[in-house]
Simulated scan of single mutants.
Amino acid sequence: MSSLTSKVALVTGGSRGIGAAIVQKLAAEGASIAFTYVNSAEKANAIVKELEKAGTKALAIQADSSLQKDVAAAVAQTAQHFGRLDILVNNAAVFVIGPIEDADKNTAQYDRQIDINIRSIATAIREAAKYISDNGRIITISSAVANYVGTAHLTDYAATKAAASSYSRGYAHDLGKRGITVNAVQPGPVDTDMNPDSGAFADAMRSKTALGRYGKAEEIAALVGFLAGPDAAYITGASITIDGGLSA
């Protein structure tokens, strides 16, 4: 029997990159899956069909994580559709970088980054707490830059990720009495369309890692799968860095 059989998981931002890898991993472990997407209904529906063909119950939910009402609705829809909620993975995020001299020109992008990278996490956890089963799992995809920035132009993004990890520590105390674990996963550079290993900063980032390479989305998903399972029941309030030695 797979470790997550009979469990229901919601993954925000689950149609691409790390989110899509997490969806596939949790499904492989036996969970029924809901995931949110913003724009590509065709791609989201293709993932649903693929999962259903493999025997997984799946639901794609259109939701903009910059809108807190969409986040709350996605949580409620998941619980209502499947009749329960056991695992929440906060993955949706945006990556806005730039020099301090340009900060005043990018206030709209800054506000959107705050809304998605911070506010949506708080909203999702607060809403999930209404539905999630005792001994459930909440996992937030933060970033290694929450602890180690290492270069210029990442300040605002790094601050949002530090907040994301801090939420996990705080909510671990709030929800621990129900056996619910709350943890953050802090990836380093991972090859996705948001941060490809062929991008403008790729060589510099690669050279900073001990392993000399970008991570794979599946490697992040494997850690999430472990934290979602029964063997991680005594891990909570942790911020686990998985960065190839970037911050070593």
Rank of each mutant, 00 (worst) to 15 (best):
R169H: 11
N106W: 11
D64Y: 06
N91I: 07
Y37L: 06
L88S: 04
T151G: 10
S15E: 09
A44T: 04
A172H: 10
D102H: 13
V75D: 06
Y148W: 12
Y171K: 01
G98K: 06
T123P: 03
N195H: 11
Q62D: 01
E218T: 15
Q113E: 14
A172I: 10
R178F: 10
D134A: 12
F95K: 06
S166G: 14
D104T: 12
S120F: 02
Y148V: 15
D102N: 14
D115M: 10
A200H: 10
G83Q: 02
Y214C: 02
D70A: 05
K105D: 13
P196S: 11
V190K: 08
V185A: 00
T192G: 07
S133M: 11
R178T: 06
A28Q: 14
I141G: 06
S239I: 01
S207F: 03
Q68R: 11
A228P: 11
I220C: 01
T236M: 04
I242T: 08
Y110W: 12
M1K: 14
R206G: 01
T192C: 09
A92P: 00
D134V: 04
A158K: 03
G244A: 05
V89G: 04
A129W: 03
I118L: 08
T155D: 12
N90D: 09
T209V: 00
A184H: 00
Y37C: 03
S168W: 02
I116M: 07
K43T: 12
A74I: 03
F82R: 07
K208D: 07
Q77D: 11
G215T: 00
N135H: 12
D203A: 15
G19S: 07
A144L: 04
F95I: 06
L67Q: 15
D243I: 06
E42S: 13
G199E: 06
H173K: 15
A58H: 08
T151F: 09
Q77P: 00
A122Y: 15
I139H: 08
A248F: 06
I116T: 14
D86K: 02
A238D: 04
K105H: 12
N91R: 05
A184R: 04
K105M: 13
T151H: 08
S6K: 14
A20L: 15
Y131T: 02
G225W: 03
V145K: 00
S166E: 12
F201M: 13
Y148G: 00
S247D: 10
A31W: 11
L51E: 10
V8I: 15
G229P: 08
A58V: 11
T241K: 09
H173W: 14
H81R: 12
L10Y: 07
I138G: 10
G17E: 10
M194A: 12
E219S: 06
A79M: 07
A34T: 08
S207T: 10
N195Y: 07
P189S: 10
G136T: 07
G19C: 08
M194K: 07
S6Y: 09
S133C: 11
V224Y: 03
H153L: 07
N117G: 05
Q80S: 15
S166N: 14
T209A: 02
A221H: 07
S6R: 13
K177M: 11
E101N: 13
